[in-house]
């Protein structure tokens, strides 16, 4: 069985070398300041509070309509199957509503609003400890209707470098105490989305 897989891989490689077709890839590195980001780890924010993330998923795509659902619980998803210089965080209205519903768009993945059609672009859930108090938060961030769009094109610094995301500032400005829960598009969701996109370096 292993031999068969190896053979398939080798023949694929041969195919790529012979025909010069390579599917570009780009790795994502997620950090919090100088530390690597992991689920269920504590990070110091604003000097005094400590934040811990239980769930972290977001969509990233390119201008040709390819998308990847990056999920912090599965590091394999940190490897994007495309290497475009311009990447898209969020989705336009066509992608949101075209009813593809398979692959990375499968509603099974928990990123689909069935009753108000559209995809959740960023899902983040966790806790914040501040002066002995524990506050939980849960954000489902999305929206494609004017004015509360969640869509941004980001430019990657260089062609070969991995895409680095630094969540330190994003964590420090989450409205954990004023709005601990968001399940709908709207102005605060949009603000959280844009703070998230500014994490892309």
């Amino acid at each position: 069985m292993i031999a068969k897989n190896t053979l398939t891989l080798m023949s694929l490689w041969l195919y790529f070398i012979l025909f010069g077709i390579t599917y570009g890839q780009r790795n994502i590195i997620i950090k919090v300041g100088s530390e690597p980001f992991n689920l269920n780890s504590n990070y110091l924010i604003n000097g005094v509070d400590s934040i811990r993330i239980d769930l972290f998923k977001f969509y990233i795509g390119n201008q040709r309509g390819d998308y990847q659902l990056v999920d912090a619980s599965d590091v394999d998803t940190y490897q994007l199957p495309f290497d475009d210089k311009f990447l898209i965080i969020g989705m336009d209205s066509v992608t949101n509503t075209s009813g593809k519903l398979d692959g990375v768009f499968d509603p099974l993945l928990g990123m689909y609003w069935a009753w108000n059609t559209g995809y959740i672009q960023l899902k983040i859930k966790g806790n914040c400890y501040s002066q002995g108090f524990n506050s939980s938060f849960d954000y489902h961030i999305g929206g494609y209707q004017v004015p509360y769009l969640t869509y941004k094109v980001v430019k990657v610094q260089s062609n070969n470098a991995p895409l680095t995301i630094d969540l330190k500032h994003f964590f420090s400005v989450l409205p954990i105490y004023s709005t601990p829960k968001i399940m709908l598009p709207g102005p605060i969701a949009q603000e959280i989305f844009y703070n998230f996109t500014s994490s892309f370096k």
């Binding site: 509503t97 519903l101 009753w115 108000n116 059609t117």
Partner: peptide, 17 residues
């Protein structure tokens, strides 16, 4: 679109509700 509030934009996705 579908439902009394028009929230569902594709017939394919409607049945999830």
């Amino acid at each position: 679109n579908f439902h009394w509030d028009g929230g569902v934009l594709s017939l394919n996705g409607q049945a999830i509700n």
